[in-house]
Nucleic acid binder design. Structure first.
Lengths: 340, 340
DNA sequence: AAGTGCAGCGAAATCGATTTAGTGTTCACA
DNA sequence: TGTGAACACTAAATCGATTTCGCTGCACTT
């Protein structure tokens, strides 16, 4: 086992001081070319790599950033992580992933453990429980300690920090208009409870679009689903009790499940019923028929969020004007809706 | 901004030495109860948290482990990560995620940057390029440095280390037998090139099952797909040129795409054609009809891998007998196959 | 009164790097 | 011959913790 070599050992072997080794490796002008060559050759031969921990301690920066997400088994979040990872690596940072599993307590623990030295800044998307509780003391605490925080997707107005979001209300508005223009009149909405900020905004966009098109809002067509378990049941009862010609799901799963239900009731898609989902993922792409979706550009969102965080880390002082980036969405027309 | 407080500052404020503070915080018996109370009260009031970096430097352990995977936008890998994260957190470790993006170069870079102090051990699943090149010097190097490595899913015989795998050959064998027992005779196989270890093993299992059941192997029914781009074309030409009554895909995507093709050709599933995929994910679950799959228990695999790594990290010495855990698979019968 | 033991605390080394403030030698120039 | 700059290098502080060893003062024994 060829152990790691340190500067101390190089210094001892070559009979110079540690400072000389350090400077030689950094090509300092105060070291003679002879010594530089000698030290660098020796270092290369023994595969010397500086110890990151020691550097972190000295420089007070770790070149690590933490991303805390509610869940990873979720295509949108994996896209975001890919984007974060790509951008962070490009800029010389590593990404530590923490999962809150939608739990407030775990979110707090993650923040606390990470905040004590392991990382330089946070990227965070709120857990459902945190949004429901509206308790953000843990976020304020890390911000107060001077640690930058960038929130993405699931954010809160109550926290002052950089943010990257989707314009959910507008995206939803556009989507519903798209459905209307394609000939749909009674559009059912499968959404989340209102404490999920994105669900709330998408619901808002839905209502506004109907209003603007002079279509009355029928609350019976709005179904709020809290957990995956109750999804099937709520969808079935919607089909049982209401008449409608389109379904808009605030995520792809909701839309796909509704589409399956329509399938099994023998409805022809999209002639008799249209379907649109939010957040384009593999489910939408490979559903049968393939699902028209709102593309959220998660990869880009991850990149932007990472860039904002690192910009702040590397800017000299804290300017206290926080930025808010809005990622544009687009509608990807596939087989589950009629052409406009 | 309430800055972080250090032991030094506590010591200065309370007019004791740093060593006393350290010992008081650790409830050392050589400090009087009075002093302990005083120090701990002060520390709590100023929300003192030890600096992890300093601890890492001193203890020569970081309590971080790195997991390097080829891709994250992949349900199986996200399940594994969830499992790793859960188990690692439970045992007091953080997880640093690195993506190789199926690239050899990036895998090497990830290993090198992580190995210089940031982490205590690796969890790794090989990139396609690495498997194709069969160049494992980077793995040998970190192992030689005394850093534990656990490989999972995509592993190599040439590296001596702990491993967690699926018994791919057997799983595939069982699946094909299942298809045969359900009445299928000509089973097409959608697989990867042989350099992908899991693809190779699954192909082997397929062949053995046919052999054991006295069915001749028809190489024309075995389609090797390298990239997603060529998937559609190869599937179409399979349908154009061959006759068969079942498709076995070595991942869920292959199976679902084939099923879509069958759909559009008006075939009735599963009466006229059956479909099975490997690695149960959302695609399988929400496909129409839902896809019968081989469940790989990725979460469990992640947990096992994390546990193996941490066990080795915390065992006193290196015993050089490496373990290999095999995760059992199971067949999840859904709508795309006939009951046996 | 001198020696012993212990409670309670502090000084300093250590982990592996960087960096500032010197130190010692050589050589040029007045 | 003496002075000072230039050069090449070193000692030591520093980052924030832990830990070993040593020191002080008091109580108690003999």
């Amino acid at each position: 086992m060829k152990k790691k070599i340190t500067m101390k050992e190089i210094a001892r072997e070559l009979d110079v001081s540690i400072s000389t080794v350090s400077k030689a490796l950094n090509n300092s002008p105060e070291i003679s070319q002879d010594t530089i060559d000698k030290v660098q050759a020796f270092a290369k031969f023994y595969n010397y790599k500086p110890n990151n921990i020691a550097l972190s301690l000295k420089n007070k920066k770790t070149k690590n950033i933490a991303v805390i997400i509610p869940e990873i088994v979720h295509h949108f979040f994996t896209l975001i992580i890919s984007g974060i990872e790509q951008k962070a690596n490009e800029l010389g940072y590593n990404v530590i992933v923490c999962l809150s599993n939608e739990s407030f307590a775990k979110e707090v623990i993650n923040l606390e453990t990470m905040a004590s030295g392991s990382i330089d800044g946070f990227l965070l998307s709120l857990s459902k429980e945190t949004m429901a509780k509206k308790d953000f003391h843990h976020l304020r605490e890390v911000i107060n300690q001077g640690m930058p925080l960038v929130m993405f997707d699931r954010v809160s107005d109550e926290i002052y920090c950089d943010k990257v979001i989707i314009d959910d209300a507008r995206a939803s508005y556009n989507t519903v208009k798209h459905l209307i223009y394609s000939g749909c009149q009674r559009i059912a909405l499968l959404t989340t409870p209102d404490y999920v900020s994105v669900g709330k905004l998408r619901t808002l966009g839905y209502k506004n679009a109907l209003k603007d098109e002079g279509i009355e809002i029928d609350e019976n067509l709005i179904v709020r689903v809290e957990t995956v378990e109750e999804l099937d049941g709520k969808v079935k009862s919607l089909f049982d009790t209401e008449k409608f010609d389109a379904v808009f799901g605030v995520n792809e799963l909701y839309a796909v499940v509704a589409m399956r239900e329509a399938h099994s009731r023998g409805l022809i898609i999209p002639q008799e019923m249209s379907f649109v989902g939010f957040s384009d993922g593999i489910l939408s792409k490979y559903a049968y028929p393939s699902l028209t979706t709102v593309v959220q550009h998660g990869f880009e969102m991850g990149q932007k969020a990472a860039k904002m965080l690192i910009d702040r880390l590397e800017s000299d002082h804290t300017d206290d004007s926080y930025k808010m980036e809005v990622i544009k969405t687009s509608i990807l027309q596939r087989e589950s809706t009629k052409p406009v």
